[in-house]
Design a protein around this nucleic acid. Structure first.
Length: 467
DNA sequence: TGCGTTTGTCATGTC
DNA sequence: GCGACATGACAAACG
């Protein structure tokens, strides 16, 4: 085994450079044969007590490279901790996508086969699976968009959402509207026998309408209701909803006078009524309350209970009552669910007065907004649930990373200690021309990428740095 | 009777 | 500019 220590110009001109010792360790040289180390003849030999195994290890270029890296990192430990520092990035969602690169950290660590060469030394202090050291970043994808998260955690829910009738894209809605059978209002219910209660109420109001049919509460002052009722004798409001619900026909006489029947009895109207009147009658007979909701295409709103469903039906029926009162020849379902083109076409086929038009628009707006509100609330709940799952997942990930960081810190500390020991041992073997050991205050060992080890004067190093 | 939840509605903004 | 949709806010209904 040979240990070479020769002057080395380092990165400065030879004439100005103080001598550096090139301590290269060819693996096949004999430590006890100074003749084999010509450049070292002017320098002290390593003592014969040097463990040959150590020197063999040192002779390995891989180990030298590893040592070189370790020494560099020892000199600059900040860089050593960089990956962990990134892992502490509080911006977790942004951090996770970038975690992929951390798996490459292992390439910067001395590979296990090199470490294993130490057998009894490094082997014990370094994780045996160093090459396997990588952050097991869960495959969570590059982003945490709520949709993906929902798909990740609630595939079933997502499927239901996508397949259900309450999609917000309107596709199903339009389909439902166009596919649903036409359910015109029961025109027979417009008969005086059904509508007239014989109890005229000049100030009766209809519930929940801003169509201009309510007098004072309506912000839509442009609506025709007021113009029709300048005396304020006619309007809708929720305050009379019970009245309306209780006696739906109670206002018939008033409205039939105010809004004379505009039934054109044209083809459209007859088709609308003939098409499904029988069917509707049959359904109404079975379950008159649920018919409008089911036919509307959103038969079961999310998180709806039976009683709430009844409320919904009651609400819808109030719109039906209004429509009946104004003798609007369309079903509420049609008004709400028809595509805009079909809706306009339907409207164009009937001569509706301004009050009727306003009410139809209100019914359509309210109906669509009701569905939109239901979808909005459903999405909000899904987002909340998804965020809760995400929070739990991130907490687990955080704990895992903390544990991993602790383990890596321990491993790094042990490696530093071992490297320091090795450094001191190698350094202590070196002797100058007089056979005296080099002062660690004046010299230090440095590695180059090719595995060469230099004994560099610290003063020189300082000078070079300052220059 | 007070309180929390659900639902419908309105107002407003965005597409 | 209009219509559809989304959403916060509010009030009513209800348990």
């Amino acid at each position: 085994m040979q240990l070479l220590a020769e002057t080395f110009p380092l990165d400065e001109p030879a004439e100005s450079a103080p001598p550096c010792l090139d301590v290269s360790v060819p693996p096949t040289t004999d430590l006890m044969m100074p003749a084999d180390i010509p450049a070292f003849t002017q320098n002290p030999l390593l003592p014969g007590s040097l463990d040959q195994a150590w020197m063999e290890l040192l002779s390995l270029p891989e180990l030298q490279q590893c040592l070189n890296m370790q020494m560099q990192e020892t000199l600059n430990m900040d860089g050593f901790m960089k990956p962990s520092g990134e892992a502490q990035n509080p911006s977790y969602s942004q951090y996770l996508p970038g975690m992929d690169h951390l798996s490459s950290v292992q390439t910067e660590v001395c590979p296990p086969e090199y470490i294993n060469t130490y057998d009894g030394s490094f082997n014990n202090m370094v994780s045996p699976n160093l090459s396997q050291m990588s952050l097991n970043v869960p495959d969570v994808g590059a982003e945490f968009r709520p949709e993906e998260f929902n798909e990740l955690f609630y595939p079933e829910m997502e499927a239901k959402v996508n397949s259900g009738p309450l999609t917000s894209d309107g596709g199903n809605m339009a389909e439902t509207a166009s596919d649903s059978p036409v359910n015109p209002m029961d025109l027979q219910s417009f008969s005086p026998g059904n509508f007239s209660s014989g109890k005229p109420e000049p100030n009766v109001e209809f519930p929940d309408s801003d169509s201009g049919l309510s007098l004072d509460s309506s912000p839509h002052m442009s609506s025709p209701g007021k113009s029709l009722n300048g005396d304020g004798s006619f309007g809708f409001s929720d305050s009379d909803s019970e009245e309306m619900d209780g006696s739906p026909g109670g206002t018939e006489s008033d409205y039939t006078e105010i809004f004379p029947l505009v039934y054109l009895n044209d083809g459209a109207q007859s088709s609308l009524s003939d098409k499904s009147s029988a069917e509707q009658q049959e359904r109404k007979g079975k379950n008159p309350k649920t018919e409008p909701v089911e036919a509307s295409g959103y038969s079961k709103p999310p998180f709806t209970k039976d009683k709430q469903k009844k409320r919904s039906e009651a609400r819808l029926s109030r719109d039906e009552q209004r429509a009946k009162a104004l003798q609007i020849p369309f079903t509420v379902d049609m008004i709400i669910n028809l595509p805009v083109d079909d809706f306009n076409e339907m409207m164009s086929k009937h001569q509706l007065n301004e009050a009727q038009l306003a009410l139809v628009r209100d019914i359509r707006r309210r109906g669509k907004n009701k569905v939109a509100a239901q979808n909005c609330r459903k999405r909000k709940l899904e987002n909340i649930v998804g965020l809760e799952y995400e929070l739990d997942s991130l907490k687990e990930e955080k704990e895992r990373l903390k544990k991993e960081k602790s383990e890596r810190s321990t491993s790094l500390r042990e490696m530093k200690q071992q490297l320091s020991t090795l450094y001191q041992e190698v350094f202590g073997m070196l002797r100058d021309e007089q056979g005296k050991p080099f002062s660690p205050n004046e010299y230090s060992l440095q590695h180059t990428a090719d595995g060469t080890v230099f004994l560099v004067p610290r003063l020189k190093k300082t000078l070079v740095k300052n220059n």
